[in-house]
Amino acid sequence: MSDPKQKLRYPQVREEGLDDWRFFLVKLHARFKTGSFVKGLELVTRITEAAEEADHHPDVVLTYPQVDIDLQSHDVGGVTSRDVALARRISAIAAELGIESAPREVSTLELALDVPDAAAVQPFWAAVLGYEQPHEWPEIMDPGGRNNTLWFQEAPDATGEVQQRFHLDIVVPREVAEERVAAAVAAGGTLVSEDAVPAFWVLADAHGNKVCVCTADGREPSTG
C-alpha cells in the first residue's frame, strides 16, 4: 500500500480481506476470545511487542475472557495502511496462540441528540461532559476514548415539549444487522423505516422511543 498517512475508505479496507476485523466509525475493531485472563495477558504482551516494533499503537481492552482492540491512525483521524498492517500482524499472533476472533460481536454505541441548532448547544455539552470536538463534524468525543461519542442530529422541530430528544445508534457488522433488527422486532419493537438500508434501520420500542441499527455499508466512504 502507498502513502502511510492516506486515509482509507470503506471499500478499500473491505478489499484487504481482514477477516478478524470490522471497519466502522473510522476505526478497525476486533475481539479475540482468549478464554482466560492469563491467555489474554499473553496476547496483549505480544501485541505490545508488535506495536512497539511498528511504532504504531492500538487501543486495547483486556477483560475476562476476551481482548477488544481498536485501530486508528490518530494523526490523520482514520484508518491507514499502518492500521491494516498491524491488524494483519495481530491476527497472525492470535492464530499462533490458538485464539479465535469474534468479529460478529464487535459494536460501537453512539449517543445522538436531536437539536434544531447544534452550534447553539454543542459547547455546553462539551463543557459539562469534559469532551472535545476533534474535527468539524457535529459531534463531541471523550478524549480518553472510554465513554460514548455524542453527536448532534439536525431536527428543526426538536423544540419545546417533545417525546424524545435522545436516541441511540448501535453500529454492528453488516452480516449481523438483519438479525439484530429481527430480534428487536420479535422483542416487541416496530420497524419504523428501511429507507436508508443498509446504512441504517430505524426501529422503535413499544413507547415509540427510536433507535438506529447501523452498518458501514451505504454511509459516506470516508466515515467508515
Rank of each mutant, 00 (worst) to 15 (best):
Q163H: 10
T108I: 12
T159A: 09
H167T: 00
E100Q: 14
G145H: 04
V115Q: 10
D157E: 08
I140H: 06
V171K: 04
A92V: 02
W151I: 04
I93T: 01
A155S: 15
A95Q: 10
W125D: 04
V121C: 10
P156Q: 06
V172M: 01
E110H: 07
Q163C: 03
A127D: 14
L111T: 07
E154N: 13
E96N: 06
A118C: 12
L168S: 06
F124S: 11
A92Q: 09
S91L: 10
P134H: 05
H167G: 00
P143I: 02
A112H: 11
E161S: 05
P116H: 08
G145Y: 03
V128E: 06
P116W: 01
L111P: 15
A112Y: 05
L129W: 14
I140D: 04
E154W: 09
A177K: 11
A95Y: 02
E178N: 01
D157G: 06
R165Q: 12
V172W: 01
G145D: 02
A177E: 00
E100S: 09
E96Y: 12
M141N: 10
R165I: 00
A126P: 15
D169I: 02
H167V: 02
A126V: 02
E139R: 12
Q163D: 07
L168D: 03
I140C: 05
L113H: 11
H167Q: 03
E100V: 06
E105V: 01
E96L: 00
I93Y: 00
V172D: 01
L111C: 14
A119R: 12
P138K: 05
R174N: 02
E100K: 15
A158S: 06
V106L: 07
I170Y: 03
A94L: 02
V115F: 08
P138Q: 05
A119I: 04
P116I: 07
S107R: 08
L97H: 01
H135R: 15
E105N: 05
G145P: 13
I90L: 04
A95I: 01
G145N: 04
R89S: 08
R104K: 08
L97Q: 06
Y131A: 07
E136N: 14
I90G: 13
R146P: 06
D142L: 03
G145C: 03
A118F: 14
D114Q: 12
A126R: 11
L113V: 14
V172H: 04
N148S: 15
G160M: 00
P138N: 10
A118Y: 14
E110P: 08
A119P: 14
R174Y: 04
V162K: 11
L97G: 03
E132M: 11
P116A: 09
I170N: 05
V162D: 09
A95G: 10
P123R: 12
R89F: 01
G144F: 08
T149C: 12
L150H: 05
E161I: 01
P138L: 00
F124A: 10
G98V: 05
L150R: 07
E175T: 04
I99H: 14
P156D: 04
A92N: 08
E139H: 10
A102R: 13
A155Y: 13
A102G: 08
I99N: 13
D142H: 14
D142E: 05
Q163I: 02
Q164S: 13
V128P: 08
Q153V: 12
Q133P: 14
